[in-house]
Design a protein around this nucleic acid. Structure first.
Length: 143
DNA sequence: GCCAACGTTGGC
DNA sequence: GCCAACGTTGGC
């Protein structure tokens, strides 16, 4: 892990925009965020940071993929009012086996994850320790 | 589809 | 500045 790098988790309903959509687009603007806390997290992202792509509001919500921040916050063109930003993300991979919310809840070292304690926040930080535990499960060959 | 949790709005 | 009403998110 590179020192100073930050890690994130970003939610999207797969019916609207999924990891497979991102695979095909390769790079996409992460638009539509209309929550101040989520927006502030977007603004804290730096080029080169990594983020999990989380599928929300589905039968089995889960971490589905990995992406990289390739452009830092800039105005969201889909926002009617000023003050809302987006970042650009690049597809890195879709995990062969997703890690479901149900499984995450059963990992004792992850009980403090924002995901488990502020379930409505759509853009959230992941600590380096949490990131490693998750990556070890999601991508055991790599890393 | 339901509803708990949370965020926002607006009257006072 | 409080808080009731309302809207949204997201797990189930």
């Amino acid at each position: 892990m590179i020192k100073g790098m930050a890690y994130w988790l970003m939610k999207s309903e797969p019916d609207v925009f999924s990891i497979e959509h991102l695979r095909h687009k390769k790079v996409a603007g992460w638009d539509g965020v209309r929550n101040y806390q989520a927006r502030n997290n977007l603004r804290a992202m730096r080029k080169g940071d990594f983020a999990f792509f989380y599928h929300s509001s589905t039968k089995s919500p889960a971490i589905a993929g990995l992406m990289e921040i390739v452009r830092e916050a800039y105005p969201d063109p889909t926002a009617k009012d000023p003050g809302w930003d987006q970042v650009d993300v690049r597809f890195v991979k879709a995990f062969v086996r997703e890690l479901s919310l149900h499984e995450i809840k059963r990992i004792s070292a992850l009980q403090k994850m924002v995901l488990l304690n502020n379930s409505r926040l759509s853009v959230q930080p992941v600590t380096p320790g949490e990131w490693k535990i998750l990556m070890d499960r999601l991508d055991p060959q790599n890393d």
